[in-house]
Each structure stands twice: as structure tokens, then as C-alpha cells.
């Protein structure tokens, strides 16, 4: 199960809407080993594409180092699909390299309704999980927000 503060859910959705029709992507970091997504980090989609995303390689290095220094891990890796459902594609599955992360997918295909789902992707196997949006227990987001 993914437990997420409502403010973090809203930031993911806002990022996905802002970058539509291109796919948006990013990370929510949390203390290592605690499965607690806290710090919102929107990433640049280096591909700027409606059908593909890839973290910019230099930004990836900077953010991953920063997480390492802070003893954090990528608790959530999110991206949007802009014309299809919020379910991992074959591409998503083949490039999923963080077996400990919650892979959040958002679909922005409907301008009025957002699909927000979470998955584990381990060794090519996708398992959907429940998403619980709650500010209790508090995991106050301290991310910089959307710039």
C-alpha cells in the first residue's frame, strides 16, 4: 500500500497537468528504509515527449547524490500518461530499476478527472497496490513545490 499526504498527491497531479500533453515525471524522496514519501522533487523530462519520459542524466546524478547524502531513497517514482490509462506500459516495465519504489502513474487523458494509481514493478512483474491519501500519520511534505 502507498500512503501519501494529500499535498504530495496534489503536487504530482499539478505537475502532470502542467506538462500535458508531454509526460511529466519526478520523485518523492523519503528516509531510507522507512517507506515514507516526504520530499517532492519534480524532474525534467529530457525527452519532452507525449509518449516517453526519461530523467535528465545530469539532474538524475545530482538528485540521487543528494538523496544519498541525506540518507534518503526514492520512495515514489511518478510519471504521467497523457492519452492512455494510468497503468504501466511495456516500456515502463522494462525500464523499472527501483524494486523498492512505488511507481505512481497519473493519467491526464481526461481534463476533468484524474486517474492516480500505484504499482510495484519487480523483475518485470507489475502489482497494483492500494493508495491511501491521508495526513494522519503526519508526514509533512517539505519539498520545494512546483517552480
Amino acid at each position: 500500500m502507498l500512503t501519501l499526504h494529500p499535498a504530495l498527491r496534489d503536487k504530482i497531479v499539478a505537475h502532470a497537468r502542467a506538462d500535458h500533453p508531454d509526460e511529466a515525471c519526478g520523485v518523492i524522496a523519503g528516509p531510507a528504509g522507512q517507506d515514507r514519501p516526504e520530499r517532492f522533487i519534480p524532474m525534467l523530462n529530457a525527452q519532452r515527449s507525449p509518449t516517453f519520459y526519461e530523467f535528465d542524466s545530469m539532474e538524475l546524478l545530482r538528485v540521487w547524490r543528494e538523496m544519498d547524502d541525506r540518507d534518503e531513497e526514492p520512495a515514489v517514482i511518478y510519471h504521467s500518461h497523457t492519452a492512455t490509462e494510468a497503468y504501466p506500459s511495456r516500456t515502463d516495465i522494462s525500464y523499472a530499476n527501483e524494486p523498492g519504489a512505488h511507481y505512481v502513474l497519473v493519467s491526464t487523458r481526461d481534463p476533468d478527472m484524474v486517474e492516480f494509481r500505484s504499482f510495484r514493478i519487480v523483475d518485470g512483474t507489475v502489482t497494483e497496490e492500494e493508495v491511501r491519501i491521508t495526513d494522519d500519520p503526519p508526514g509533512a511534505p517539505d519539498g520545494p513545490g512546483l517552480e
Binding site: 509526460e23 515525471c25 520523485v27 524532474m43 525527452q47 515527449s49 507525449p50 509518449t51 516517453f52 519520459y53 526519461e54 530523467f55 542524466s57 538524475l60 546524478l61 540521487w64 547524490r65 517514482i77 510519471h79 500518461h81 497523457t82 492519452a83 492512455t84 504501466p88 506500459s89 511495456r90 516500456t91 515502463d92 516495465i93 525500464y95 523499472a96 530499476n97 527501483e98
Partner: peptide, 12 residues
Amino acid sequence: VTVLPAVAGGAG
């Protein structure tokens, strides 16, 4: 030297 897998995917 640092090795990092790309974080990538998409609707395809």
C-alpha cells in the same frame, strides 16, 4: 565512477 540506471518509461 558512478553507475545509475536511467529512470525512464512512458506510454510508448
